[in-house]
Design a protein around this nucleic acid. Structure first.
Lengths: 343, 343
DNA sequence: ATTGGCAGTCGTCCGACACGAGTGCTAACC
DNA sequence: GGTTAGCACTCGTGTCGGACGACTGCCAAT
């Protein structure tokens, strides 16, 4: 078993290594921290830690570096996250408060978060979850071309084009619009798919093609939006900390562009409400190319919607304490902002 | 003056350097190309080119490398661009043809272009230009909260939230919606701003607050959309060619995230319709951090809109010939796609 | 104008070597 | 038993020198 002091030693090793980017030796520890014991004693503790595979030595004669497992223990020991600075709180309030719609809120959120953490920030659009249909709009763009716009009470707006086989009759369109809204308005999206199937029957048989095409489009729209989208900012930060990546940042950038990878990773973290979690290095090895990165993430909620993810990605050697605090604070504000009104 | 053959030598130097990433010497040139003269003669030509600052030697005893000016001469000499491969043409057709709306078209465009060129691809959303209002939607999201949705015939859909001081009356809203559409429908956006000013007067005085708030929102919406947006793909490609950047790719990634920088650069290139241009290295030195990059760009047009930009960014040492061909082909297809219908 | 030859430059590679940081171990100490 | 001082040992890093090789630039000959 590792002693109490050994865990303390692990803590300072993580801290110093994160700060300096260099392996930390026993001598440096006793110099920069008041342990009240000699370097030799620290060395004994370090031997323990190495035994437990919490730290490792890059070369025989060099300081120690935390392993992924070491970071894990370190993170699990973090009980209290220090709150953000007043200036940062202020920045959240003012910067996010100015947003004009959901896109804008999320875009500002990730920019802010990447600033606070100096990492790549990611936010998932709220999934439909228990969201309801707020309004359906059907607009004629041309004689045989329509656009359907689906607005949910989570503030999401999705448009989709469709061609209809026959010329569109303005009057019929207005009626269709009215009836679709009457039928679907307020309905949870989960129920819409089922309802859509019965919809054509409820309509006068005058324009079966039109009704059919619109229903199909709405169905597709809902299906397509099950697959969530991500918004991202601060990718440049990866290049700043380039040295942290043994090979190249190429696979990391690739994974970020391949949003599916990130969404899968978020999903695997099994985040609960108001809980900040970390996935460290090889813990998410299944996600190719991200073996040298860690993700700190949490969830936020919207009025209608379920849980959506929010977090930062950076080198395994990151400031977990600060990043977890920032992620939590931003997520909390986001939940409040998206809960208090209907955007 | 530089001789005819010297220009030919410049051409092969650019080609070989782009292919091998290594300075090219006189001996390598005579070996890999049939000039019918000896290495010494090539050396004389190279001396000429160096005199003109079209090539330079990294060290006294190493091969030569093209300067920015050398690339410029090379690019200006490119008269004919070889067409894309049938497979690539096919890819454009099928992949872009599947797009469901403007967002999707542009997102697919940049992904395709970054694949073809192995560079970062960028596309600017069509500016309003001479676009016209297709439809205005006003949706009640809550008792005192509205959303205005502006749809143009370029396929752009923009939403914006607004709070109104008094509870919204559904009937009044419907009337307002109808009148706004009657007044603004089909109007070029350039004229909308002016028209908006006179709008409130044309309405019954029953809900001045409501009318005023909606008009203000639409005004903001138009103003906000003057500033264009960019969509981007293939940033990971920068990391792949990392060696091409002396320092780090950090400033480049930063410039890419700062969309304003790229939009400004596009603007400075003064691109005409169906003309592919290149901006090489220090030619756009004003854009900080992009001194080691080149941009190959062209324009595309939409039914209603003016010219929007499309292009790729990569290391100065890029395959201009291939990239220019790819950019041109994709832009042409895009113009055709966005012109033929109303998406 | 072109060519072969040749001296000269300079970057790169390699082995040797000194240096220093840091460890692990042992024996003594409290 | 935990702690400490001391010391030998390992090993990465930086430096130096020399051999090698790739090119160039120039000159005299064609």
């Amino acid at each position: 078993m590792v002693s109490e002091r050994s865990l303390e030693v692990l803590r300072v090793i993580v801290q110093d290594y994160v700060a300096s980017q260099e392996p930390v030796g026993s001598k440096a520890i006793v110099e920069r921290h008041s342990f009240g014991v000699s370097a030799a004693t620290i060395r004994n503790d370090m031997a323990q830690l190495e035994e437990e595979e919490l730290i490792t030595a890059p070369h025989t004669s060099s300081g120690r570096v935390p392993t992924d497992k070491g970071y894990r223990v370190f993170v699990d020991q973090l009980t209290e996250l220090r709150p953000l600075s007043p200036a940062q709180r202020q920045a959240i309030e003012t910067f996010l408060g100015e947003a004009v719609d959901l896109d804008d809120v999320l875009s500002r959120t990730v920019r802010l978060l990447s600033q606070f953490t100096s990492q790549v920030a990611l936010a998932q659009y709220p999934s439909f979850g228990s969201a309801r249909v707020r309004h359906v709009e059907i607009v004629a763009l041309g004689p045989t071309r329509l656009m359907t716009v689906l607005i949910t009470d989570t503030g999401r707006v999705d448009q989709r084009l469709l061609d209809v086989p026959t010329t569109v009759d303005d009057e019929a369109l207005a009626e269709l619009r009215g009836r679709v809204n009457a039928e679907l308005g307020g309905l949870p999206l989960a129920d819409v798919a089922a309802k859509l199937g019965t919809l054509p029957a409820a309509f006068p048989r005058e324009h079966p093609d039109l009704v059919h095409a619109v229903v199909a489009s709405l169905g597709e729209q809902i299906a397509a939006n099950r697959q969530d989208r991500l918004v991202m900012a601060g990718a440049a930060n990866l290049a700043r900390t380039e040295r942290d990546f043994r090979g190249s940042i190429y696979p990391v950038l690739e994974a970020l562009e391949e949003q599916v990878t990130m969404l899968k990773l978020f999903g695997e973290m099994e985040i609960e409400v108001d809980e900040v979690r970390a996935s460290i290095g090889h813990e998410h090895e299944t996600s190719g190319g991200l073996g040298e990165t860690s993700v700190v993430a949490t969830g936020y909620t919207t009025t209608g919607g379920g849980l959506a993810h929010l977090g930062v990605l950076g080198p395994t050697r990151m400031d977990y304490s600060n990043n977890m605090a920032a992620v939590r604070a931003v997520a909390r504000y986001l939940t409040r902002l998206l809960g208090e009104d209907d955007r």
